[in-house]
Simulated scan of single mutants.
Amino acid sequence: MRLFRVRFFVLAMIALVMGCSAPEEEIPEENFQKLELLIKRMVQQGGALAEDLDTVAHYYEYLLTRKDSIREHSRPSPYRFVGGISTNLPGQDSSLSSVILLNSTPDRKKAEEQVVLTNFLDSVFAAFMRRNPMAVQIYSNSSMQVSRVYPTYDVRNIVDINLDVTAFNFYYEADFDHNPSKGLVWIPEAYVDPAGKGWILSLVHPIYDGDELFAVLGVDYTVSDIIQHYLDSVEGEFILVNSKGDIVAGKAEAIESLSMPPLKNHVYRETVHSDYFRISDFNLFSSKSREVREMAQHFLLEKKDRFEFQEEANLHWAICVPFVGVDWFLVEVFPNH
């Protein structure tokens, strides 16, 4: 009899606890489908861009196989230089790029020869930009420190002529150590463009002359365009993060709700154009909120797809869907109502 009473008491306590616990809320499947559709749109656009850039890369490498013939039969160069910077300015001639022979070049004569060789890229660059309106610029940066960027921009007032392009991620992420397959590479971290386009994301392709890395071909998206074209097109509070927790892009309200630093004028696209913005400041693992840091671990390390907030007064839950082929995650946060 005593044993029966003990068992009855235990069962009663279990029933009481279960009765007092709120059932786990079911997240509608259409919320995940919305994120998957957004990702699909971005991946399709990125895939088309990658395929087109790959075509440009093949043409570039074909030019290198004919470099001796090009040197012998080259036409007069349309470029004139002052202090290593081409003198053409934006709005003057839409068929030309901005070309820079940086002071960091190890061989000035070879750099000048590369300018002549790569003049043939101008028409290819212009056609690429016409086909890809989401791209903001296409460029080549060579191991000889020759930079060719289309369309033309105000180089003299923007670029430090002493910089070393090989020290930037849009160059070294494509080198053999980082990219032994020698194929296309998405750079998952946003960075400040030295050509003045603000915070951007890049797709790059190494260009080899035999076994030597001759140059890196690249194309850029701006972070603000990604926000406007994709994230602003759908109702909801979204952030795009990489596997390290860095916020690549996102709506201002979503970012601020995750206890990140305050944004200039509450507009993320203005913040990402500012030099004071630092990726480390906008990393989910650096959030002031313990729960947001837990959410980051939940999504990025444990690969789970939903997180319920218990302590954050303004947040209810968040969901996450990963990309395929690049270490990005799309997160939607849901405020308390």
Rank of each mutant, 00 (worst) to 15 (best):
I100Y: 13
I85K: 09
I27Q: 03
K110M: 11
D122S: 10
S69H: 14
T87E: 15
K34D: 09
R41M: 00
T55Q: 11
L64I: 10
R66F: 09
Y62M: 12
R71N: 06
I85V: 15
K109M: 09
D54Q: 14
L49H: 02
G83S: 13
N119P: 11
P23Q: 10
V82M: 07
Q45G: 01
R41W: 02
G83P: 12
V115E: 05
P106W: 05
P78G: 06
K109V: 07
I27R: 02
K34T: 13
V99G: 12
E112A: 07
L35N: 08
S98L: 12
L89P: 07
D52C: 06
L63F: 05
P76V: 05
L89Y: 13
Q33S: 09
H73Q: 06
L35E: 03
E72V: 04
L37Q: 15
H73W: 12
K109Q: 15
L96D: 08
I70V: 00
Y62K: 08
P90T: 05
F120P: 03
P106S: 03
T65P: 01
E30F: 15
R41S: 02
H73G: 14
Q45C: 05
Y79V: 00
D122I: 04
E24T: 04
D122R: 14
S97D: 13
V115N: 06
S86Y: 01
D68A: 14
Y60P: 00
S104R: 01
A57I: 03
G84S: 06
E51D: 13
F120I: 01
D68H: 13
L121N: 01
G91C: 12
L53F: 10
R108Y: 14
Y59D: 13
R75W: 10
T87V: 15
F125E: 12
V99I: 15
K67C: 07
R71H: 08
D93W: 01
D68S: 14
R80Y: 00
A50W: 06
H58E: 12
Q114F: 06
E26Q: 06
A57S: 15
A111G: 11
K40E: 04
K34I: 00
E24Q: 01
E26T: 07
S95C: 09
G47K: 04
G46I: 02
L96A: 10
Y60F: 09
V82Y: 08
D68Y: 12
Q45F: 02
A22Y: 02
L64T: 11
A48L: 15
S21G: 09
R75G: 07
R75N: 07
L117V: 05
D68F: 11
S97C: 12
N88Q: 15
D54M: 03
S69K: 12
P90A: 03
P76Y: 08
S97E: 14
L64Y: 03
I85S: 08
K40D: 06
L49A: 03
Q92Y: 10
H58M: 10
A126I: 10
N88V: 15
M42G: 00
Q92G: 05
H73L: 13
P76M: 05
E25P: 07
D93V: 11
R41I: 02
V116T: 09
R80S: 14
N31P: 01
L63R: 08
A57D: 06
D122M: 06
I100G: 10
E61W: 04
